[in-house]
């Protein structure tokens, strides 16, 4: 009987993913992000390129917070919220309680200049450039206790 009900009510029984994900400040926790994003991407029927872009930007943003914002301090919280906007975007809002850091400030954005030779290739410092390129909108603002980073992506199907 339950099986019949499940077959006839797939939408009712297949809930939307929680729009909020709470992580702690360790790189291992970032493994929780991918299945959450995949569930959201399925629900919003996102294209493969938009899925890629969201995964990329969130990995860059969250790993920056863990490594640079919290400087390796464990058990600090990071929250990620996902919501559609009236402008037809899927907007991710990432909040932390790390010291204020504006990733869009010129000094931060220029942290890794385009390398001119293979010897100048720096193994890191690409995250901000990638987030700018792969999101449709990026914004930062300080909060009373930390930072709020907003990343938007097109919802067009």
């Amino acid at each position: 009987m339950l099986g019949l009900l499940a077959a006839s009510m797939p939408e009712a029984l297949s809930a939307w993913p929680d729009p909020r994900l709470t992580l702690t400040s360790q790189l291992e926790d970032l493994a929780l992000v991918l299945p959450w994003l995949q569930a959201l991407a399925d629900r919003y029927a996102l294209t493969a390129s938009t899925r890629f872009a969201i995964q990329l930007c969130l990995e860059e943003a969250l790993s920056n917070i863990v490594r640079h914002g919290y400087r390796g301090r464990a058990n600090q919280s990071i929250t990620v919220e996902c919501a559609p906007s009236p402008a037809g975007e899927l907007v991710f809002t990432i909040e932390d309680h790390a010291p204020p850091f504006d990733p869009l400030a010129p000094s931060a954005a220029d942290a890794a200049p385009t390398p001119q030779s293979i010897d100048e290739l720096q193994p890191g410092g690409q995250g901000i450039r990638l987030m700018r390129r792969f999101s449709s909108r990026i914004a930062w603002e300080p909060t009373p206790s930390g930072n709020r980073l907003t990343l938007a992506f097109p919802l067009a199907r």
Binding site: F52, Q55, L56, E59, E60, S63, I118, D119, L121, Q122, P123, G124, G125, Q126, G127, L130
Partner: peptide, 20 residues
């Protein structure tokens, strides 16, 4: 199927070693 900046690092460091 996916490449982030940590993945880039896994390409850049070996490439620099070969080039050196």
């Amino acid at each position: 199927e996916f490449l982030g900046s940590m993945g880039l690092r896994s390409i850049v460091i070996p490439a620099r070693a070969v080039h050196s």
